[in-house]
Design a protein around this nucleic acid. Structure first.
Lengths: 121, 121
DNA sequence: ACCTTGATTCGACGTCTGTCGATACAGCCG
DNA sequence: CGGCTGTATCGACAGACGTCGAATCAAGGT
């Protein structure tokens, strides 16, 4: 087994919109859908991760170097740990360019979360 | 101190839209905003809570009796515990009518979460 | 080669969280 | 009143989580 670790969610790249789940008002979530979505919400359920995510999302192009966003009040290993969590949840992708590592938001995945929360009544 | 417990977020009722936070692409979240939003995402970060929430949201009128949604595979005290968490996060309100307790979704709060995740690029 | 800088992994620690059974509370109905 | 049903609280416990310092890996520069 070459990947016994936490399974990394596949991250769709490009402009394709991935309808992860119907709006939550459309019907009950299945057990499987609930677990997948819960994992994504859990990734954003920490203030540090939320700030890291917002720093990346608000950077031009939706991407940022770790060194640009590391100032969130915790140690640098902790920042790395949180970025890994966000990446494993499929909300971010990472790419090494020379000395630095750049993280990008996965827009379609985040849009899927927003679509789930469409509760207009 | 009459409420030394977990502080319950105020739940706006009625049709008024509450712009909790600007889209996450608009700029970095402040520490305080990050903590408030993280608390909401944390409330939806559990599969059981997500299924309870979806059952209520998909009920007509966005409200449901506990007895109608309690079948999610965990014990009744655990269901009650999760509903309390969702209520404390401001995502649900509760109301006792006779023997039964009805939970309703707080649409504007959920809409605020969705607005935060507006990451169109 | 070596050292420096950026980033990840490792190991440990205290805290928070989800779960349960037992118990208590709130209304209805005989 | 006394029992019954629906819901909430309590106390306990195992497992997950966030954090850190130390160590390791990756690229560049001198």
């Amino acid at each position: 087994m070459s990947k016994s670790e936490v399974e990394e969610l596949p991250v769709p790249r490009g402009g394709d919109v991935v309808p992860c789940c119907p709006p939550i008002t459309a019907g009950e979530l299945s057990q499987a859908d609930a677990e997948r979505m819960a994992a994504m919400f859990k990734a954003l359920s920490d203030p540090v991760r939320l700030r890291l995510f917002s720093k990346i999302a608000s950077h031009p192009g939706g991407e940022a170097c770790v060194c640009d966003i590391a100032d969130v009040g915790v140690s640098q290993p902790t920042v790395s740990h949180h970025l890994k969590k966000l990446r494993e949840a499929g909300l971010l992708t990472s790419e090494r360019r020379g000395t630095w590592v750049y993280y990008q938001v996965a827009p379609s995945v985040v849009a899927g979360m927003a679509a789930l929360l469409d509760v207009r009544d």
